[in-house]
Design a protein around this nucleic acid. Structure first.
Lengths: 109, 109
DNA sequence: CATATCAATCGCAATATTACGATTGATTTT
DNA sequence: AAAATCAATCGTAATATTGCGATTGATATG
């Protein structure tokens, strides 16, 4: 099948999974880290940074845009990318909430 | 291709991505949450909880075991699953480190 | 020892992902 | 207007993922 049965899970579970999926590729991690490093807009020099073709990078950027993690603002010929702080913080607290729910120090097995 | 070019990324980027990937499915989120909820070992009643076939659940459990997030201890006929606190905390701090690196309140674009 | 039970694995089908060359569309620059 | 530049999209190939029925292997139970 290759098709996730989303309908049997809760909205929150699907959202968490989708968020993870958006970051479940080293290229997308690298893109985000590059945007973090510059602490500002990055005007389309991402292709030079990573060793992937322009079409591939564009595809990864699209996925990050689809989940709202980054924005792309057209600036003449180039496009300026930056992280959306609002979505970023949403993700952060969602993950915090997920991880905080386990505090046991010892393994029961 | 369908093949990730892992060699052009750093070890840490690949690890982060692999971690995200392990949690990038609602069924695996649900499994983890079930283990969290019971706060102890869960002896193979996971199939009844989710609406997926036994073979499918077993596959998801395998992926979670592969990244070390959960352990499966054989206990007679059934298998007892529980979260590995060590790996869990490793994941937590890796993600914390990733998300903490961005603190801007405003969008520059 | 025969049978029942549970979980892992095999094999398959359907769909998704990753990657890239080529093309397209939009905007500058000449 | 023509040429150059940049990024999105199209089309395609290779591989991965998801899901499940069927089978297998191991352990209990009758």
């Amino acid at each position: 099948m290759g098709l996730t049965k989303k309908e049997i899970f809760t909205e929150k579970q699907n959202r968490l999974a989708a968020m993870m999926k958006a970051l479940a590729h080293p290229a997308r991690i690298a893109i985000i880290q590059h945007l973090l490093k510059t602490k500002a807009c990055v005007c389309g020099d991402i292709v030079d940074e990573l060793g992937l073709a322009q079409a591939t990078i564009s595809q990864h950027l699209k996925e990050l845009k689809n989940v709202g993690l980054i924005q792309g603002n057209i600036e003449g010929v180039t496009v300026c990318y930056c992280i959306d702080p609002k979505v970023w913080n949403q993700y952060r607290s969602l993950l915090d909430g997920f991880f905080v729910s386990y505090t046991n120090k010892e393994n029961c097995c």
